[in-house]
Computed example of a mutant assay.
Amino acid sequence: MGGDGMLNIAIVEDDPQAAGLLTAYLDRYAQERGTSCNSVIFNDAVDFLTGYKASFDLVFMDIELPGLDGMEAARRLREVDRSVVLIFVTNMANFAVKGYEVDALDFIVKPVAYFPFSIKLDRAVKRLESRQERELLVPAEDGVVCLKCSEVTYIEVMQHRITYHTREKSYTGYGSLKKIEPLLPEKVFAKCNSCYVVNLRYVRQVKDFSVLVGKDWLAISHARRKPFLSALNEYIGSME
């Protein structure tokens, strides 16, 4: 969500009438809730994914799309954007179960009625508000970079050096965890040992005393294993 509270929404729908109905519902919702919505309609998934930039807060994805179907499009979307809220719009309720594979928040069955639509949109807004961005000033080669906490996969501490790892690159400087931890969103980051603070959003797998964060396996200490798993379970529960 933008600083002004505007919702940026993508509607991936090949049926002009269905897309128009969703747009009308968004206008009604914005008027009733005293907010604003900016929506962009894509007629097919390929058009939506081509040159995709993580600028949307929410995506309404039709499952029955020509060419690349909505479920496969969602899988590809998650490869480049794991944080955007995803809601499926479908004629087939049985496909909704598969939505959990791509971290879909919910699904709406056609024909779409306004009341269930508004309830699900309320839920999406609640999730977005819980993710309000905090930013960190981190060192870079040419000075300082303002880095969103959601972009940090994990933080590594070795002696007095701190490395902020993201999916694209890493930034290293000097500091201490005591100063960094209060700046991190509560219940989103957790220590897996004395050297690593993990963004729970990027946890892919836990195996014995190791955790896969993005593409990196990190060690979980015996002392931190129970509180780390507890924090992870609480985070997963908050996303449901």
Score class of each variant (00 low, 15 high):
residue 113 A to E: 12
residue 46 V to H: 02
residue 45 A to G: 13
residue 86 L to D: 02
residue 73 A to M: 11
residue 44 D to T: 04
residue 121 L to D: 07
residue 81 D to Y: 01
residue 89 V to S: 04
residue 88 F to I: 00
residue 100 Y to H: 15
residue 47 D to S: 14
residue 74 A to L: 01
residue 99 G to A: 06
residue 17 Q to M: 11
residue 116 P to T: 12
residue 49 L to K: 09
residue 65 L to D: 02
residue 43 N to W: 04
residue 94 N to L: 14
residue 37 C to Q: 11
residue 39 S to H: 08
residue 67 G to N: 15
residue 86 L to F: 04
residue 65 L to M: 07
residue 48 F to M: 13
residue 53 K to E: 15
residue 69 D to V: 14
residue 63 I to C: 01
residue 17 Q to I: 14
residue 65 L to E: 03
residue 104 A to Q: 09
residue 80 V to I: 10
residue 54 A to D: 14
residue 69 D to R: 10
residue 44 D to C: 10
residue 43 N to Q: 12
residue 48 F to V: 09
residue 101 E to P: 03
residue 70 G to K: 01
residue 50 T to P: 11
residue 108 I to E: 03
residue 77 L to D: 03
residue 45 A to E: 06
residue 121 L to M: 09
residue 77 L to A: 02
residue 60 F to Y: 12
residue 48 F to S: 07
residue 41 I to V: 09
residue 109 V to L: 11
residue 76 R to T: 05
residue 78 R to V: 01
residue 42 F to T: 08
residue 16 P to H: 07
residue 30 A to W: 05
residue 51 G to R: 08
residue 19 A to P: 06
residue 73 A to E: 04
residue 59 V to K: 05
residue 83 S to Y: 06
residue 100 Y to L: 15
residue 61 M to W: 02
residue 52 Y to V: 10
residue 31 Q to T: 13
residue 18 A to R: 11
residue 72 E to D: 07
residue 82 R to D: 12
residue 96 A to R: 02
residue 25 Y to C: 12
residue 60 F to M: 06
residue 109 V to C: 04
residue 61 M to V: 09
residue 29 Y to R: 07
residue 51 G to A: 14
residue 56 F to W: 14
residue 94 N to V: 10
residue 55 S to N: 09
residue 70 G to H: 02
residue 48 F to P: 00
residue 59 V to T: 05
residue 111 P to W: 14
residue 81 D to T: 07
residue 30 A to G: 10
residue 65 L to T: 10
residue 32 E to I: 15
residue 109 V to R: 03
residue 39 S to C: 11
residue 69 D to W: 13
residue 98 K to Q: 09
residue 106 D to K: 04
residue 73 A to G: 05
residue 41 I to Y: 08
residue 98 K to W: 08
residue 85 V to P: 00
residue 58 L to Q: 03
residue 28 R to Y: 09
residue 88 F to V: 00
residue 22 L to W: 06
residue 55 S to L: 14
residue 100 Y to E: 06
residue 79 E to W: 01
residue 50 T to M: 13
residue 106 D to R: 04
residue 123 R to G: 05
residue 71 M to Q: 04
residue 117 F to K: 04
residue 78 R to E: 02
residue 79 E to V: 06
residue 78 R to G: 00
residue 78 R to F: 01
residue 118 S to D: 15
residue 108 I to G: 08
residue 107 F to G: 00
residue 38 N to H: 11
residue 120 K to V: 05
residue 81 D to L: 06
residue 74 A to R: 00
residue 91 N to G: 15
residue 49 L to E: 12
residue 64 E to N: 15
residue 59 V to D: 04
residue 101 E to I: 02
residue 88 F to T: 00
residue 29 Y to E: 07
residue 66 P to W: 07
residue 85 V to Y: 00
residue 94 N to F: 08
residue 44 D to N: 15
residue 84 V to Y: 02
residue 83 S to M: 10
residue 108 I to M: 13
residue 61 M to F: 02
residue 52 Y to K: 11
residue 39 S to M: 06
residue 115 F to C: 12
residue 69 D to C: 15
residue 86 L to K: 05
residue 111 P to H: 13
residue 108 I to Q: 04
residue 72 E to P: 03
residue 36 S to E: 12
residue 92 M to V: 02
residue 18 A to Q: 15
residue 118 S to R: 14
residue 87 I to N: 01
